[in-house]
Design a protein around this nucleic acid. Structure first.
Length: 674
DNA sequence: ACGACCCCTT
């Protein structure tokens, strides 16, 4: 027990070796100091007793007095050697828990060692826990290995740390080591290890753990049972999960919830609902689970019906349905529900904002965000800022984006990967690739998305060489590229006209990285070839694709046909496009432009008729620019802006300026040619 | 000393 220290540490002049004195004596340095004693004082036991009794005779001190009894001892107080009582131990534990850096932890550890507590059952698990919070599990393992008597609590602390840090594989490996050493797990061990098995889809290992559970008689435990149900549900062996559920003698609402959740995640909603109806007790979490089940299977109507039936709703219930509407694109219902909510938290705001973003209503995203800031009841979190930044990216709202950047940094979101990634994207899309690069470089933790975002950002800005060199750095950093990475890479090659390189990256993607090319990749390759003028090869690529080319591919091909004035292929592309999207007049416009550029006015006229027959008008292209912190949208020949006249005057001036410096537009070329 | 079920992101 930590309360007791060996007597020699509290050196008494009359000797701690006094016959009959218990080997361990509780001491409390703080109390002794508080009672006015000082280091080096020689006191009789009687005095000490009186001093300690004096202030209020707190119960904590009584054991000391009891054990020391009435012996006539004279003690020389040695504060340094004198050790830790409960309160000092608590202090030490508190310090351990509040370690902010690994350096700090080392300092506390040296304290621990000075006091000879480095093997203490009470302290070591806390050290491991502190390592877990500091994401230093390798170090934790070193500490763990140095402990001679590893009890279950220590093992459990390791499992917990691994779980917290997503080191599930390590947890599972450690468990097999534990079994090999013959250490007896307890009821806390199994749920943690099983959870790690679920996380890494280690069903087989999980089954082995299940065997140990049975062997050690833990299968009646509610926590263990819940974990087993989750193991089998996660492994899509719902029958096995149900077997565990059925064999449990005692089931609480958590067990029922896990089982129902298992059916839901296996897509068996009728079974889930059946169990839901049978459940002897339904708490708000079970209701929420069932509502979410319907939502996940796309049944918003049933979800809403259940939601309306709920006897008690918490903020999560509301958010669940809110998110359902947000993800299903029902902005109106989402909005309505949001206003009705009795209590809103940051998730509620995020759902509303995301529903706008999902719907492409980016101005509303910004408005909702501003409203959130003004109302001040709920602070935005990293998810909020990431969504807002992506809206800024879409709108080109650089000023607000910059503002969010400053806000994020002054609110401690500096190390957040989501925000970092969103910032890279925002700056790239707003045209400031240097800032995107700065953000990228400043991130001390980067993930795959950070690399993908900066690579495609550079590619889009025509900085293909930088994109490709970053791809090299990415590999050096040990980050595994995925399909998205290669889209960026191929895009970079396309921009630089590096056809052969592009083709070889495409090959490497499948051969070296075993990434199965998606339609986007084929599209990139078609684009790569077509833009380089190798239209025949591009067409060939389209033919050899394992899937049907979509409108994007044909559209891009049509675009290249315009540049290289290949009418036959353009007509073929248009034919495909009309089949794929008969309602999109933009396709006609493209071919019509090609005819026009070649002076085939008869064909242009014919196409116009065909286009009119479709009955659809081409939506004019829309541009968005940020002016004085406000984003303005305008169309071709748009006169809605209050300063339209001024704008067009400026534009005219700009065009004049461009011409005087030798710029010739396509239209003029056309005029000259005919 | 240690534990389970529901809402959030690029």
């Amino acid at each position: 027990m930590p309360l007791y220290r060996r007597i020699p540490k509290l050196r008494g002049t009359a000797g701690g070796m006094h016959a009959g004195l218990p080997e361990y004596v509780p001491v409390n340095l703080k109390d002794i100091a508080e009672a006015g004693f000082q280091d080096g004082d020689e006191v009789s036991l009687e005095t000490l007793k009186k001093g300690l009794m004096n202030p209020l005779g707190r119960e904590k001190r009584l054991p000391l007095l009891k054990i020391l009894g009435d012996r006539e001892l004279s003690l020389k107080l040695n504060f340094k050697a004198c050790a830790f009582s409960a309160s000092a131990m608590e202090k030490l534990i508190y310090v351990l828990q509040s370690c902010k850096t690994i350096k700090h932890l080392h300092q506390v550890q040296s304290q621990i060692i000075t006091h000879g507590l480095e093997q203490s059952d009470c302290i070591v698990p806390r050290i491991i826990a502190a390592c877990g919070l500091l994401k230093a599990m390798t170090y934790a393992h070193r500490v763990f290995d140095k402990i001679s008597d590893q009890n279950v609590a220590l093992w459990n602390a390791m499992f917990k740390g691994y779980g917290q840090n997503e080191l599930h594989k390590e947890a599972v490996v450690l468990f097999s080591k534990m079994m090999k050493f013959g250490v007896m797990p307890n009821c806390f061990t199994f749920p943690m290890v099983l959870k790690s098995c679920v996380k890494i889809c280690a069903l087989r290992e999980g089954e082995e753990v299940h065997c140990f559970v049975i062997k050690n008689g833990f299968r009646g435990n509610l926590f263990v049972g819940t974990a087993l149900i989750e193991l089998y549900s996660g492994g899509r062996v719902i029958e096995a999960a149900y077997k565990v559920f059925g064999e449990m003698v005692e089931r609480n609402v958590v067990v029922w919830t896990s089982m129902i959740n298992g059916y839901i995640s296996c897509g068996e909603i009728p079974s889930a609902r059946c169990l839901f109806n049978l459940a002897p007790e339904r708490d708000v979490i079970l209701w929420n689970t069932m509502v979410l089940g319907y939502i996940e299977l796309g049944n918003m109507v049933e979800a809403r019906k259940l939601f309306d039936q709920m006897p008690k709703k918490d903020v999560i219930s509301w958010n669940t349905v809110l998110n359902g509407y947000a993800n299903n694109g029902d902005v109106e219902e989402c909005q309505r529900l949001f206003e009705e909510m009795p209590e809103k938290n940051v998730f509620s705001w995020n759902a509303l904002i995301r529903s706008y973003a999902h719907n492409g209503s980016f101005f509303e995203v910004l408005d909702a965000f501003k409203r959130m800031l003004i109302e001040e009841r709920v602070l935005p979190n990293d998810a909020t800022l990431a969504t807002v930044l992506s809206a800024c990216a879409r709108l080109g709202a650089l000023d607000l984006g910059k503002w969010v950047h400053v806000y994020a940094e002054s609110n401690g979101y500096k190390g957040n990967v989501y925000i970092g990634n969103a910032l890279i994207d925002m700056y790239a899309k707003c045209g400031i690739i240097e800032n995107a690069m700065d953000v990228f470089k400043s991130m001390d933790k980067k993930d795959l998305i950070s690399w993908n975002t900066i690579i495609s950002g550079l590619a889009m800005h025509g900085r293909g060489a930088d994109a490709l060199s970053l791809f090299g750095e990415m590999k050096n950093a040990g980050e595994m590229p995925d399909g998205i990475t290669f889209i960026g890479i191929m895009c970079a090659c396309t921009h630089m006209g590096l056809v052969e390189e592009g083709l070889s990256y495409f090959q490497a993607m499948t051969e070296d990285y075993s990434i199965e090319p998606q339609i986007e990749h084929y599209g990139c390759m078609v684009d790569l070839l077509a833009r380089a003028g190798r239209l025949a090869e591009a067409t060939d690529f389209v033919r050899r694709m394992p899937m049907q080319a979509d409108s994007v591919i044909w559209g891009n091909l049509l675009g290249s046909c315009r540049i290289y004035k290949n009418v036959e292929l353009a007509e073929l592309a248009l034919k495909q496009l009309i089949e794929l999207e008969p309602k999109n007049p933009a396709n006609f416009v493209m071919l019509s432009n090609i005819y026009g550029e070649l002076g085939r006015w008869k064909d242009v006229a014919q196409l116009k008729v065909a286009m009119r027959d479709t009955g659809f008008k081409k939506l004019p292209g829309c541009s968005l620019i940020g002016v004085n912190e406000v984003v303005v949208e305008f169309y071709s020949l748009d006169e809605r802006h209050s300063k339209a006249e001024e704008i067009y005057e400026t534009l005219k001036g700009l065009t004049k300026l461009l011409r005087s410096s030798g710029y010739v537009s396509d239209i003029q070329l056309l005029e000259q040619g005919t």
